[in-house]
Amino acid sequence: MIGRVWKFGDGIDTDLLAPGAYMKGSVEELAKHCLESVEPKFAASVKPGDVVVAGRNFGIGSSREQAAQALKMLGVAAVVAESFGGIFYRNAFNLGLPALVCAQAGTIEAGQQIDIDPAAGRIVVRNDGRVLTCDAVPEHLMQIVALGGLVPYLEQRFRRAG
Protein backbone atom coordinates (compact mmCIF):
# COMPACT_ATOMS: atom_id res chain seq x y z
CA MET A 1 0.00 0.00 0.00
CA ILE A 2 1.17 3.51 -0.84
CA GLY A 3 0.07 6.41 1.31
CA ARG A 4 0.71 10.04 2.08
CA VAL A 5 2.19 10.69 5.52
CA TRP A 6 0.65 12.61 8.43
CA LYS A 7 3.37 13.09 11.02
CA PHE A 8 2.90 13.25 14.80
CA GLY A 9 5.25 13.27 17.78
CA ASP A 10 5.65 11.12 20.89
CA GLY A 11 2.93 10.06 23.32
CA ILE A 12 -0.17 10.57 21.16
CA ASP A 13 -2.72 9.34 23.73
CA THR A 14 -6.24 7.96 23.45
CA ASP A 15 -7.78 11.21 24.72
CA LEU A 16 -6.26 12.97 21.70
CA LEU A 17 -7.39 10.22 19.30
CA ALA A 18 -10.87 9.73 20.81
CA PRO A 19 -11.78 12.65 23.11
CA GLY A 20 -13.91 11.60 26.09
CA ALA A 21 -16.47 14.32 25.48
CA TYR A 22 -17.59 12.54 22.28
CA MET A 23 -17.40 8.95 23.50
CA LYS A 24 -21.12 8.78 24.29
CA GLY A 25 -22.22 9.29 20.70
CA SER A 26 -21.51 7.59 17.39
CA VAL A 27 -18.00 6.78 16.20
CA GLU A 28 -18.75 8.79 13.01
CA GLU A 29 -19.18 11.92 15.14
CA LEU A 30 -16.22 11.05 17.38
CA ALA A 31 -13.96 10.61 14.34
CA LYS A 32 -14.53 14.26 13.36
CA HIS A 33 -12.64 15.21 16.53
CA CYS A 34 -9.80 12.71 16.16
CA LEU A 35 -6.46 14.42 16.91
CA GLU A 36 -8.06 17.89 16.74
CA SER A 37 -6.10 19.07 19.81
CA VAL A 38 -2.79 18.58 18.00
CA GLU A 39 -3.79 18.93 14.33
CA PRO A 40 -7.14 20.73 13.93
CA LYS A 41 -7.43 20.04 10.19
CA PHE A 42 -6.61 16.32 10.40
CA ALA A 43 -10.11 14.81 10.40
CA ALA A 44 -11.39 17.07 7.63
CA SER A 45 -8.30 16.74 5.42
CA VAL A 46 -7.09 13.16 5.80
CA LYS A 47 -7.71 11.10 2.64
CA PRO A 48 -8.42 7.37 2.33
CA GLY A 49 -5.09 5.56 2.06
CA ASP A 50 -3.15 8.15 4.06
CA VAL A 51 -0.76 6.88 6.71
CA VAL A 52 -0.17 8.14 10.25
CA VAL A 53 3.49 8.17 11.30
CA ALA A 54 4.44 8.96 14.89
CA GLY A 55 7.12 8.70 17.56
CA ARG A 56 7.15 6.69 20.75
CA ASN A 57 4.18 5.29 22.65
CA PHE A 58 1.40 5.93 20.12
CA GLY A 59 -2.07 5.20 21.53
CA ILE A 60 -1.19 5.14 25.23
CA GLY A 61 -3.90 5.50 27.82
CA SER A 62 -7.42 4.15 27.64
CA SER A 63 -8.51 0.77 26.28
CA ARG A 64 -11.17 2.56 24.17
CA GLU A 65 -10.80 1.02 20.73
CA GLN A 66 -12.55 4.00 19.21
CA ALA A 67 -9.03 5.50 19.16
CA ALA A 68 -8.11 3.03 16.42
CA GLN A 69 -11.61 2.87 14.96
CA ALA A 70 -11.69 6.65 14.37
CA LEU A 71 -8.47 6.43 12.33
CA LYS A 72 -9.87 3.48 10.38
CA MET A 73 -13.14 5.31 9.76
CA LEU A 74 -11.27 8.34 8.41
CA GLY A 75 -9.57 6.06 5.88
CA VAL A 76 -6.13 5.80 7.48
CA ALA A 77 -4.49 2.72 5.92
CA ALA A 78 -1.83 2.07 8.56
CA VAL A 79 -0.08 3.55 11.58
CA VAL A 80 3.71 3.48 11.76
CA ALA A 81 5.36 4.42 15.06
CA GLU A 82 8.57 3.94 17.02
CA SER A 83 6.44 2.14 19.63
CA PHE A 84 2.79 1.65 20.59
CA GLY A 85 0.70 1.45 23.74
CA GLY A 86 0.07 -2.30 24.14
CA ILE A 87 -3.72 -2.13 24.17
CA PHE A 88 -3.87 0.18 21.14
CA TYR A 89 -1.63 -2.20 19.20
CA ARG A 90 -4.04 -5.10 19.76
CA ASN A 91 -7.08 -2.91 19.08
CA ALA A 92 -5.67 -1.69 15.76
CA PHE A 93 -5.25 -5.21 14.34
CA ASN A 94 -8.61 -6.29 15.79
CA LEU A 95 -10.23 -3.51 13.75
CA GLY A 96 -8.26 -4.24 10.58
CA LEU A 97 -5.76 -1.38 10.93
CA PRO A 98 -2.11 -2.48 10.56
CA ALA A 99 0.20 -1.03 13.22
CA LEU A 100 3.90 -1.22 12.42
CA VAL A 101 6.78 -0.67 14.81
CA CYS A 102 9.61 1.11 12.98
CA ALA A 103 12.64 2.42 14.86
CA GLN A 104 13.29 4.88 12.02
CA ALA A 105 9.76 6.29 11.94
CA GLY A 106 11.20 9.64 13.03
CA THR A 107 13.07 9.96 9.73
CA ILE A 108 9.85 9.89 7.69
CA GLU A 109 8.51 13.37 6.94
CA ALA A 110 5.02 14.79 6.70
CA GLY A 111 3.61 14.70 3.18
CA GLN A 112 6.02 12.03 1.90
CA GLN A 113 4.65 9.05 0.00
CA ILE A 114 5.57 5.74 1.61
CA ASP A 115 5.06 2.23 0.32
CA ILE A 116 4.28 -0.16 3.16
CA ASP A 117 4.50 -3.94 3.08
CA PRO A 118 3.29 -5.05 6.52
CA ALA A 119 3.88 -8.76 5.90
CA ALA A 120 7.49 -8.18 4.84
CA GLY A 121 8.01 -5.55 7.53
CA ARG A 122 9.30 -3.05 4.98
CA ILE A 123 8.66 0.60 4.20
CA VAL A 124 9.99 2.33 1.08
CA VAL A 125 10.08 6.12 1.20
CA ARG A 126 9.24 6.96 -2.41
CA ASN A 127 10.59 10.50 -2.26
CA ASP A 128 14.17 9.36 -1.63
CA GLY A 129 14.07 5.58 -2.14
CA ARG A 130 15.14 4.73 1.40
CA VAL A 131 14.11 1.29 2.68
CA LEU A 132 13.14 1.11 6.37
CA THR A 133 12.71 -2.08 8.35
CA CYS A 134 9.79 -2.72 10.71
CA ASP A 135 9.47 -5.26 13.52
CA ALA A 136 7.84 -8.52 12.44
CA VAL A 137 4.11 -8.75 13.05
CA PRO A 138 2.91 -12.03 14.65
CA GLU A 139 1.47 -14.26 11.93
CA HIS A 140 -2.00 -14.56 13.45
CA LEU A 141 -2.30 -10.76 13.58
CA MET A 142 -1.49 -10.58 9.86
CA GLN A 143 -4.23 -13.16 9.25
CA ILE A 144 -6.67 -11.10 11.31
CA VAL A 145 -5.85 -7.87 9.47
CA ALA A 146 -5.99 -9.62 6.09
CA LEU A 147 -9.58 -10.65 6.81
CA GLY A 148 -10.47 -7.13 7.93
CA GLY A 149 -10.30 -7.63 11.69
CA LEU A 150 -11.01 -9.98 14.57
CA VAL A 151 -14.77 -10.20 13.97
CA PRO A 152 -14.53 -11.57 10.40
CA TYR A 153 -11.67 -13.81 11.64
CA LEU A 154 -13.92 -15.24 14.37
CA GLU A 155 -16.82 -15.54 11.91
CA GLN A 156 -14.64 -17.75 9.76
CA ARG A 157 -13.58 -19.78 12.79
CA PHE A 158 -17.18 -20.34 13.95
CA ARG A 159 -18.27 -21.21 10.38
CA ARG A 160 -15.54 -23.84 10.16
CA ALA A 161 -16.43 -25.22 13.59
CA GLY A 162 -20.15 -25.20 12.83
Binding site: S63, E65, R90, N91, N94, L150, V151, L154
Partner: peptide, 8 residues
Protein backbone atom coordinates in the same frame (compact mmCIF):
# COMPACT_ATOMS: atom_id res chain seq x y z
CA UNK B 1 -8.24 -4.95 26.27
CA UNK B 2 -10.51 -3.08 23.86
CA UNK B 3 -14.10 -4.02 23.09
CA UNK B 4 -13.51 -6.19 20.00
CA UNK B 5 -10.81 -8.13 21.85
CA UNK B 6 -13.26 -8.53 24.72
CA UNK B 7 -16.00 -9.70 22.36
CA UNK B 8 -13.58 -12.41 21.24
Amino acid sequence: VGATDMAG
